[in-house]
Design a protein around this nucleic acid. Sequence first.
DNA 1: AGGCGAATGAACCGCTCAGTTCATTCCAGG
DNA 2: CCTGGAATGAACTGAGCGGTTCATTCGCCT
Lengths: 204, 204
Amino acid sequence: MTAPHPSIHAKILAAAVEQFAVDGFEGANMDAIARRAGVAKPTIYNHFRDKSALYLASIEYMLGRNRATIASPSFASLPAGKGILKVALELTWLFGRDDDMLMFCKMCIAGNERFQTAADVFLRNGPWRGTDEIASLLRVWHERGELRIDRPSFAARQLSELCKADIFDARLFGGPAMATEEECRFTASEAARTFLARYARHER
Amino acid sequence: MTAPHPSIHAKILAAAVEQFAVDGFEGANMDAIARRAGVAKPTIYNHFRDKSALYLASIEYMLGRNRATIASPSFASLPAGKGILKVALELTWLFGRDDDMLMFCKMCIAGNERFQTAADVFLRNGPWRGTDEIASLLRVWHERGELRIDRPSFAARQLSELCKADIFDARLFGGPAMATEEECRFTASEAARTFLARYARHER
DNA sequence: AGGCGAATGAACCGCTCAGTTCATTCCAGG
DNA sequence: CCTGGAATGAACTGAGCGGTTCATTCGCCT
C-alpha cells in the first residue's frame, strides 16, 4: 500500500496559503490552487475533505511555520532592557514584514462570522499565544527585580500594540507594501523605550 | 414623477454594510442583502448599478456617519494628564464599543485588494485623521511644557495603539461582542499611565 | 378617482465554481 | 514483470449567485 505522498500534501498547503491570502476564502478557486500546486484537482480532494477543510488546514500550516518564537525563552537570560528590545524587534518584523501573517489576518477578519472556528484558531494560536509567551518573559524579569509589572499579561499586550505603531494599519488597510527595516527598527526601539519608561524599576 | 424612495435607499445601504462587513465582497450575496433590507432584489438594482457600486456606496455611507472627533480641541485647555486620559477614553470607547467603526474596519480590510481606493479613503479619514488630531493636541501640551514629545505624530499613534490593548483584537476576530465599560476604562487608564510615563516632563 | 412611477416577487439566464467520475498513467514493492 | 494504490486530466454534475424580465401591486399627487 502506498500512502499519499507527504510532499504533495505540503505543496497543496503552500499553494492554498498563497491563493487564500490573495483572494480570500470565497475568491480563491480550487482549480487555481491545483494549478498553483502543480497537482490535479482530484488529488486535492484526496488529501482534504473539501474547501473548508483545506482552509482550516492552511491556517494551521501557516501558524505552524510561523512558530518563529516571538519571545524566545533564551531572551530571559538578557537584561530586561535588551530583552524587551529584542521582543519588540521580533514583533515589528512580524507586523511589518511578514506577508503570510498579514494575509491570514485579513482573511480571518473578513470571514470571522462564517468561519468562527478559523478565526478562533488564529486568534488563540496567533496573537494570544504570542502575548502569553511575552508575559512569561515579563514575569521572569519582574521576579528578577528588573521590571515592576503587576499585570504581565496586560503589559504584554500593551507592548505588542506599541509595536504596531505607524506600520500595521497601513498594511492592514493598504496594499502589500512592506515596512522598511528602518521603520521597523524605529518603531521597535520607541516601543521598548515607552514600555520601559512605564515598567522599568527605576533606581534612584 | 416619483423619485426612488430615499428611506429604501438607506435601508439597502445599511443592510449592505452589515452583509459586506460579515462576508466580505465576494462572500456577500445580493439575495441576502435584499432579504436583510426587506426589499426586492430588482429594487436594489433600481438604486445601484451593480454589486460593486453598492459596495462603494456603502463605504461612503459609513464614512458619512463616522465623523466622530476623537480629540476635541476643547481638551487643550485641560492639564496634559487629564487630557491624555480623556483622549484615551474616547479611543477605547471607539475601539471597544463602536460597532459601526468595527464593521467598517472589517469591510475595508475584507475588500482592500479589489477596492484599494475605498480602503485608502478609510485609512486617511479614519485612523490617520484621528492620530493627526491627537498630534495637534500633543503639540499644545508640549509647547506648554507639560509634555516632552519630539515626534507628536508618532507618539499619537503609540497612544492610539495602546488603547487597543486587550480589547480590539478580540473584536476584530469576532469573539465577544463588545468590551465592557469597565474594560474600556481600565485599558484607557493604563494607556494614559504608560504614555505619560514616557512623555510627561518629570519635575525633580 | 385615476394615473404614473416605483416596488414586488417569482421565474429565469448565464456563468462560475465546488466536488465527482472515470479511464489512463505512473511508480514502488515483491 | 506484475500488481495495486496513488496521481492525472478532462469531462461532467449540480448548486449558487449576479443580474434581468415581466406581470402585478402599491402609494403618492393632482
